[in-house]
């Protein structure tokens, strides 16, 4: 399985993601520059956290116009896994692959801490290795992680089981304590917490590893069918 990690100017979790795949699940992975325009050689795309374009205009707004974006959309429409973490989640909402938006934290403060999440849905290609309602510890680091959507969108997300992760405690004002959502097709996931920073107990938690194992295992199951 070949992963692409997209690198925008201002991405800063790209190397963490790279090593999560290389050393965490021992899969093939390459850094792909935002000026590239094809992802045809890859089986999955990871959009890292950071501050693409310095968060100018809105988080993810300028990255949404980068040359690589049509290739990401194409890969998503082909049903391949697309994972956006933190700034990656913000970019996925800006390019319309996920509904809603991430706005400034209610307390107007950057938060950087380990938080408890509940895996609400373990029937996805990103979470199959977790158990349903499993409680996990994953770090967050964001100033604009307050998930917002209108009531109609929230009803749809609930009805289709698209809320994959919830915060146990309300940490930033997100609607319905949403920490991560998936598209209706089930191949595009966005989340504010950083699973790539939770791969080894020595750094506090290895609860993020199962996410990468899930992606790999789901891919192998598909390939071997």
């Amino acid at each position: 399985m070949r992963f692409a990690v997209i690198v925008f100017p201002g991405s800063n979790c790209d190397k963490d993601l790279f090593y999560a795949i290389k050393d965490g699940i021992h899969a093939e992975v390459e850094m792909v520059d935002y000026r590239e325009n094809s992802l045809d050689e890859y089986d999955a795309v990871m959009i890292p956290g950071g501050f693409s374009y310095g968060d100018y205009l809105r988080s993810g707004a300028i990255a949404a116009q980068a040359p690589i974006i049509p290739a990401i959309k194409k890969l998503a429409h082909e049903g391949k896994p697309v994972l956006g973490i933190c700034n990656g989640f913000q970019i996925l909402t800006e390019i319309g692959l996920l509904p809603g938006a991430l706005i400034r934290n209610r307390q107007n403060k950057f938060i950087c801490e380990s938080v408890e999440l509940i895996v609400e849905d373990n029937q996805t290609i990103f979470t199959s290795e977790y158990s349903k309602k499993e409680s996990i510890n994953i770090p967050v680091a964001h100033g604009e992680g307050n998930y917002y959507c209108d009531d109609a969108t929230l009803s749809t997300l609930k009805a289709n089981d698209q809320i994959v992760f919830r915060y146990v405690n309300d940490i930033n004002g997100s609607v319905d304590n949403i920490a991560g959502i998936i598209n209706s097709k089930g191949n595009v996931l966005g989340m504010m917490p950083h699973p790539e920073r939770a791969l080894e107990k020595i750094v506090g938690s290895d609860d993020g590893l199962k996410m990468f194992q899930s992606i790999l295992k789901s891919h192998m199951n598909r390939v071997n069918l």
Partner: peptide, 9 residues
């Protein structure tokens, strides 16, 4: 519509 404003918010 495409850049300066996010119609969601």
């Amino acid at each position: 519509d495409k850049l300066l404003a996010n119609p969601n918010m």
